[in-house]
Amino acid sequence: MASGDLVHLASQYNTPTYRDVSTAAGYSSGKYGVSTAPTPSRDGDSGLWFLFAETSSPQDGALRAGDVVHILSNYGPPNGGWLETMGLAPAPATGLHGVYTNDYSNRDNNSGSWRFAQA
């Protein structure tokens, strides 16, 4: 994979599902809520994401395990926002933080920074 690639993000929990933007974010600075869907693109480009690396070694454009990336939704004009974590997960979820999209790639203290790890 290379920085700038357009991909689907597939969850491996239970049966494979795909990361997808859905409804309004539910907080004032967000764009969309993020959940999973049973198909790669539930609504047009709702399940397509661009991957942008901060850097890599060597600097050849490739993405590697351990690289920090920012993930941009391809949904809607001009874009569906940057994938980020924000606050507590909404009820009745039991997770630590909610996942949304935002207009900013790094709104607050690495909230929009993600790292790929070897599965």
Rank of each mutant, 00 (worst) to 15 (best):
residue 69 V to Q: 02
residue 91 A to H: 01
residue 3 S to G: 09
residue 50 F to C: 02
residue 29 S to R: 13
residue 78 P to G: 07
residue 12 Q to C: 04
residue 56 S to P: 01
residue 102 N to M: 01
residue 83 L to Q: 05
residue 94 T to S: 11
residue 61 G to H: 11
residue 88 L to R: 13
residue 39 T to I: 15
residue 9 L to N: 06
residue 50 F to R: 14
residue 84 E to Y: 01
residue 34 V to G: 08
residue 115 R to I: 15
residue 114 W to K: 10
residue 30 G to N: 07
residue 118 Q to P: 10
residue 54 E to C: 00
residue 119 A to S: 14
residue 113 S to Y: 11
residue 111 S to T: 05
residue 102 N to G: 00
residue 87 G to V: 02
residue 28 S to L: 10
residue 24 A to S: 14
residue 94 T to K: 10
residue 65 A to W: 11
residue 44 G to E: 02
residue 38 P to Q: 07
residue 6 L to C: 07
residue 84 E to K: 12
residue 43 D to C: 05
residue 65 A to N: 14
residue 112 G to P: 04
residue 115 R to A: 15
residue 39 T to Q: 15
residue 8 H to F: 13
residue 97 H to P: 00
residue 27 Y to T: 10
residue 96 L to W: 04
residue 95 G to N: 10
residue 3 S to P: 02
residue 101 T to D: 02
residue 117 A to C: 06
residue 66 G to M: 10
residue 31 K to G: 00
residue 111 S to H: 08
residue 96 L to V: 07
residue 90 P to Y: 08
residue 100 Y to C: 07
residue 51 L to N: 07
residue 33 G to F: 09
residue 109 N to Q: 12
residue 48 L to H: 01
residue 59 Q to R: 12
residue 7 V to W: 09
residue 114 W to G: 09
residue 49 W to C: 03
residue 42 R to M: 12
